[in-house]
Each structure stands twice: as structure tokens, then as C-alpha cells.
Simulated scan of single mutants.
Amino acid sequence: MWAAERCWSRWERALLCGVLVAAWETAWGQLRYSIPEEMPKGSFVGDVAKDLGLQLPALIDHGVRIISESRTQYFALHGKTGHLVTAERIDREQLCRVLEKCMLRCGVIVEGEMQVYGIEVEVTDINDNSPSFREAETELRISETTAPGRRFPLAEAHDPDSGPNSVQSYELSGDEHFSLAVQTGPGGDQRPELVLAKALDREEVAFHELVLRASDGGEPGRTGAARIRVSVLDANDNAPVFSQAEYTVRVPENVPVGSTLVTVTATDADEGLNGHVKYTFHKISGRASEIFHLNSETGEISLKDDIDFEELSSHELEVQARDGGDHSNTAKVAITVTDVNDNEPQISIQSVQIV
């Protein structure tokens, strides 16, 4: 008997719940309130008793409670005042990330009267988030031969707030080589672009440090920033330059074979292969090519055979420095051979016959 009554009671409660839910679905919008997000727990939402014309004794006597369509109960009814209050702090961005309007629904059930009153509460946005970029630092690699006017898309900032509290503008700080352009997307979103305003020169400045700032339209406003590092890629726009236009050296004729006579040096302002210099003889006589050796990497000119003042007292060479591309330069090398006392006197006697 008791078990049957208990089963009947459960069935009755299930039926009652079904009836109340059906009534709740048709009662939406009877009361509408609006509150800003992030209000402390227990904050006032609306005077339900007054707005529904219910007497407080009737509310207490007939058993009134709040039901919600979500698992989390965001609102509570204050029994003594009939006020609807927040049951916990509400974060609009967490509840309604992609919705323009954030609406929360709950219902007031007066069990004694089998009556349901539907309530809709709009949670409005406050400027509680700052714009932020997915990457705090971004690197761009741009060739120094890139023509001014070229545009490079930049990452957009994200702000979970809505309306004017979301991202409204961008600002770029850095140097005169770059400016900022902002395009408007199909959905009204702003898309920042980096514009090359002035030609780059890697040999002058190899890196450019920029800061992109995004600002929202809240009061007070909030900003977020990302650093942009522009690496200027080298182009072969420089030729090797010798330290001297002409190298002059004097060597005695008895200098040992293998000795280094002079070292020519050329530098190239480019980097990598474009700045790697190799040396070759550009102009040299046949005999001089048998006497002198040029190290293609170091520019050292050394002896590979004996030199003889009596044979040839001076040599004029021309050395070429070439980089990894098509740029080259030349320098002259004048080698003077000085005499040493390496020969004995020779007496030549000629006889004359007198007839």
C-alpha cells in the first residue's frame, strides 16, 4: 500500500513537472529584465512580486521557486522581498561567445496555483576584456629589393567583448619605412596590413622593430599590443671593395720560395653567398704566373718560384675580387724586386793580334 502510494506520488510529480514545463514554454517573455555582466552574487535583477502583481503572503503560502532551462541556476527569488537576484556572478563572454544578444531564461513557479511565469534576462556587455593577439611577437622576412607600396597582412586582434567594447582601431609605431593600412572585411571586421613606405637597405638596417596596438571603444578604453620584427633579406646589391686601389711591395730577390709577399683584401657589405669574396688574377704575364701564387680565399700572394732581379726587376699584376653573384672589382699589385749581391764579378778578356 505504501509502495503504491509512493509510486503514485512519483507519477503525480512527473505529470506535474510536465504540465509546468509546457506552461513555462508558453509563458516566455512575461517579464523582461536587463543586467550588466559580472554583477556580484545577490545583485538585484527585478521586482518579480510587484511586476506580476503578486502579494508576498501569497508567494510564501503557495510555495514559489525558480526553475531554469540550464543546469546552472543563475537567479534566485528572495522570499521576503519578492526580488529576483543573481545566484552567482555571470560572465557574458563565457555564456554567449558568438551571440549578439545574451538572453537567460528562467521561470517562477507558484505551485499552489499551478501557475508559471516566464522571465527573460538580457545580460549586457561591459568592457572587461582587453584586445589581444594570438602571438605576442611576429617575424616578417622582407627582401631589400621589395618595392615600396607592397602590403603584408597582419594578424587581427581578438576581443571577446561585443559592440563598441570590441576592437575598434589599430595603431603602428616603429620607423619611417613602414605604415599601417586597415581594410574592412565583409562582416565589418578590421584587418590590419603592414605597408612598405620606404625602400629597405639591409646594409643600413638589418632589422626593424615595430609595435602594433589594438584599441577597443570602451570607457575607459583598453589596448593590446604585439611586436613585429622585420628581418631584411639580403640582395646582391653591393660589389666587393678593395682596401687599397693599388698595392705596392718591394721584395729582395733572395726571398725564399713559399713566402707571402702581400695580401690583398676586399670586403662586400652583402651577407651570405652574396658577400663571400674570392680572388683571381685578372691580368698577369706568362712569366709572372709561373712565379706568383694567389690564394683565392685569403688574397695572399706568395712565391712559387725564385725571382731574379737580373731577369726582371718589377712585376705588375691585377687581382679581381668577385662575390657569389655577378659583382666584382679589381686592384693593381706592383711588385718591385730589389737587387742583392748574389753574383760574382766576371772578367772578360779579349785578345788582340797585332800584325
Rank of each mutant, 00 (worst) to 15 (best):
A14D: 13
I347K: 08
E144D: 11
P240L: 10
D128M: 11
P36V: 09
E171S: 15
K41H: 07
L273F: 06
K80M: 06
T145N: 08
D216S: 04
I119H: 02
Q73I: 00
E122D: 09
A245V: 11
I109D: 06
V337W: 02
L233Q: 13
L54M: 14
A157N: 03
G63M: 07
V241E: 14
Q94D: 06
P40D: 12
G112E: 03
E310L: 14
L294Q: 01
E25K: 11
F133P: 04
N343I: 09
L95S: 00
V255S: 14
G275Y: 08
P345T: 02
I126W: 00
E318M: 09
G174C: 05
L56R: 10
W2P: 07
C106M: 10
E139G: 08
G46W: 07
S166F: 05
I109N: 06
V108E: 03
A331G: 02
I354Q: 07
L77P: 01
R227P: 03
A321N: 01
E176M: 10
A235F: 07
F152C: 04
T260K: 12
I354T: 08
R10T: 04
K198G: 07
K283D: 13
D47N: 15
R13Q: 08
L194I: 10
A58F: 09
V48G: 11
P131V: 00
P164W: 08
V319A: 09
P256W: 07
L20N: 01
L15E: 08
A87S: 15
P220F: 04
V319R: 05
A27F: 09
G299Q: 00
Q115V: 12
I347R: 08
C96E: 02
L104W: 02
R32T: 13
V249C: 03
E193P: 00
L172V: 00
C7W: 06
I67W: 00
E204R: 13
E69R: 09
L210T: 00
G107D: 09
R105M: 10
E209C: 05
L20Q: 05
R13K: 05
M39E: 12
V257A: 09
D175I: 05
H293C: 12
W8Y: 07
H276M: 13
N274W: 06
I349L: 14
S43K: 10
D326N: 14
N329Q: 08
A87H: 05
V230T: 00
L16H: 04
N329Y: 03
S314D: 11
D305E: 14
F242N: 12
E25L: 14
E318D: 01
E111L: 15
G163S: 05
T26S: 15
F309E: 00
Y74P: 02
L154G: 02
L99G: 07
A87F: 04
V241H: 07
K101I: 03
D305K: 08
E300T: 04
R65Q: 09
R92A: 07
S231Y: 08
L31M: 09
E139S: 15
F75C: 05
V337I: 12
P164T: 14
R65K: 12
Y33K: 04
A239H: 01
T223L: 00
G221R: 13
A147N: 09
G272D: 11
M39C: 12
A27L: 11
S169T: 15
A22D: 11
F133W: 04
F242W: 09
G63K: 08
D326K: 13
E88L: 15
P148S: 02
T223M: 01
S243D: 13
V333W: 06
